[in-house]
C-alpha cells in the first residue's frame, strides 16, 4: 500500500499534498492516482487541482474543513478499489515533429555536447513515449519525462528572448514544446505543425497532465502540408 502524502495548508484556501520528492515514473503514477482520488472525494469543495511531479495542490472554494484521518482512510479504500490500474490509463497522443535545421536552432550545440549524430539525436528523441508530468510555466506547456540520458544537455546560458510557438526543446532531463511565442532557455531541436494552445477550443490545450506522448519525425514538406491543413 502506498504511503499517504504529507498534507499542508499553503494558505487558508489551498492544500498541498506531497509524496517523496522525486521525478520518476513511480511518483508520476502515484500523483495521477491521488489527483483522481482527491478530485472525486472533495469534488464539492474544490475549484481545481494542479498535479505536479510529486505534489498535488488543491484549490478549495473558500475555507473548508478537511480531515486528514478521513482522507487517509478513503485513500486506502480507493487504492484497493482501483488496484487493477485501468484508471491510470491517460490519453495516448502521437505528435509529428520536423527536426529540420530550419527549426532545430540548437541541433549543432546538442550534437556537440552529446557527441551524437543528427540521426541519433532524432531517433533517441522520437523513439520513446513520454509522460506529461505537469502542464504549466506557460499555458499548455507540457513538461515531458523522461528524456533519454544521452540527450541531457544543459539549458542555454542566456535564454532566447523569443522562441517561436510550437518549437520543441530539450533542457536537462526534460523535453517540452513551447505553446506560444515566449522567451525560453531550452535547446530547440525541432517544431511541430500542431497548435498547442487555442482559447477558442473547449479544451484550450493540446496536452493534459497524465497523457502519454510519442513523437515521430516528419520532413519539411510534410510539416508545411500539415501546417496548412491546420489553418
Amino acid at each position: 500500500m502506498n504511503d499517504f502524502p504529507k498534507m499542508m495548508w499553503v494558505s487558508q484556501n489551498t492544500l498541498r499534498f506531497a509524496f517523496s520528492e522525486e521525478i520518476s515514473q513511480e511518483s508520476f503514477l502515484l500523483v495521477q492516482h491521488f489527483n483522481r482520488f482527491i478530485r472525486k472525494f472533495l469534488q464539492h469543495q474544490i475549484i481545481e487541482t494542479v498535479a505536479g511531479y510529486y505534489t498535488i495542490t488543491v484549490y478549495l472554494k473558500g475555507r473548508q474543513h478537511v480531515s486528514y484521518e478521513k482522507l487517509l482512510e478513503q485513500w486506502q479504500h480507493y487504492q484497493i478499489e482501483t488496484m487493477n490500474g485501468s484508471h491510470l490509463i491517460g490519453r495516448e497522443l502521437t505528435v509529428p515533429i520536423c527536426y529540420d535545421e530550419e527549426f532545430a536552432l540548437d541541433m549543432e550545440r546538442v550534437m556537440e555536447h552529446t557527441k551524437l549524430s543528427y540521426e541519433e539525436v532524432v531517433s533517441l528523441h522520437s523513439g520513446r513515449s513520454y509522460a506529461v508530468h505537469l502542464v504549466g510555466f506557460l499555458p499548455g506547456f507540457p513538461y515531458l519525462g523522461e528524456l533519454d540520458s544521452r540527450l541531457h544537455v544543459p539549458r542555454l546560458q542566456k535564454p532566447r528572448k523569443l522562441v517561436d510557438a510550437s518549437s520543441v526543446g530539450i533542457g536537462g532531463r526534460q523535453t517540452g514544446i513551447y505553446p506560444i511565442d515566449s522567451p525560453g532557455g531550452w535547446n530547440i531541436i525541432g517544431r511541430t505543425p500542431h497548435r498547442l494552445f487555442d482559447v477558442k477550443n473547449n479544451e484550450p490545450t493540446l496536452f493534459q497532465t497524465g497523457d502519454s506522448v510519442t513523437f515521430y519525425a516528419i520532413t519539411k514538406q510534410e510539416f508545411y502540408n500539415m501546417n496548412q491543413e491546420r489553418v
Partner: peptide, 8 residues
Amino acid sequence: FGYRAQGI
C-alpha cells in the same frame, strides 16, 4: 478559474 492544471 478551472484552467490552472492546463497552465492558464
